[in-house]
């Protein structure tokens, strides 16, 4: 018992990530789902009518399809995604052991495609990349987000956090202005969400198609009239890591439906 107490005290001194200040306490986390109209909620929950599931179907086919000079499919190495990919998306973004780079799920899929399959990488936001990432993330549906921000991930987390609180764009807003301080309030006809990442890739009515979290972040940059960083910029991965930590415990909803 004493040893346990000492251990607990030691953990407090080391100030692990979960003692980090949360603006929105974990008990108060709300998925973007909570901010949808009943019609859109119904659309997301109905696996037949949810258009995002079309990409999941396509991703399942791609998972088993041979590609590249290596003539290998994802399944040749990873087996049945329903087992091997279960819970994986919940732990992304993740640091690549060899390069030290922070990888989003999309970046990891592209890496495997080039390095393992020896194939031409998919374009960002292409149907195939969205399909595969949606299929992989779908295997974690219902599981709690639990990104690791310790060790090599720490500096990316810090950068993401700094980005979240940095004002930008002609409107001179940071992420927290809307999504920490004013969520639940209305901006004209729209209720501001907490900006949680747990439904992506998601089918957004605004886009009329499936899109990645990165695309959603670009939309926010565009919304505050800031410079839109190119797809694949490390800043997006850093911010995604901060968002994943911030959403810790929220269930993955991929493919979500959003406005």
């Amino acid at each position: 018992m004493k040893a346990l107490l000492l251990l607990a005290a030691g953990m407090l001194v080391a100030a692990p990530a979960w003692t980090q200040n949360r603006v929105i306490p974990q008990a108060g986390l709300k998925s973007g789902f909570e901010f949808l109209s009943p019609d859109l909620k119904k659309m997301q929950l109905d696996d037949f009518a949810n258009p995002g599931t079309l990409w999941v179907d396509r991703g399942e086919k791609l998972w088993r399809a041979e590609a590249g000079a290596a003539k290998k499919s994802c399944a040749d190495c990873h087996g049945d995604a329903r087992a091997s990919m279960k819970g994986v998306a919940a732990r992304y973004p993740q640091v690549d052991r060899h390069s030290g780079d922070l990888m989003t799920l999309e970046a990891r899929i592209l890496q495997s495609r080039v390095e393992r399959q020896k194939a031409v990488p998919f374009a960002r936001e292409s149907e195939d990349l969205l399909a595969l990432s949606a299929y992989v993330a779908y295997q974690s549906r219902g599981m709690a987000m639990e990104a690791d921000i310790e060790g090599a991930a720490r500096k990316h987390f810090d950068a993401g956090e700094a980005m979240f609180f940095r004002r930008r764009g002609q409107l001179n807003l940071n992420c927290a202005h809307c999504h920490d301080a004013n969520w639940g309030r209305t901006l004209y006809a729209e209720r501001i969400s907490q900006g949680q990442p747990n439904a992506y890739p998601a089918y957004r009515l605004e886009w009329q198609t499936l899109g990645s979290l990165e695309r959603r972040l670009r939309a926010c940059l565009s919304g505050v009239r800031a410079e839109i960083l190119p797809f694949g910029s490390p800043e997006y991965a850093d911010l995604a890591l901060y968002l994943s930590w911030r959403a810790k415990g929220l269930p993955i909803e991929t493919p979500g439906v959003r406005r």
């Binding site: 037949f48 009518a49 258009p51 079309l54 396509r58 009329q208 198609t209």
Partner: peptide
């Protein structure tokens, strides 16, 4: 009968 077709329209 329910149908869903993937198409950009």
């Amino acid at each position: 009968v329910r149908i869903l077709i993937q198409h950009v329209m």
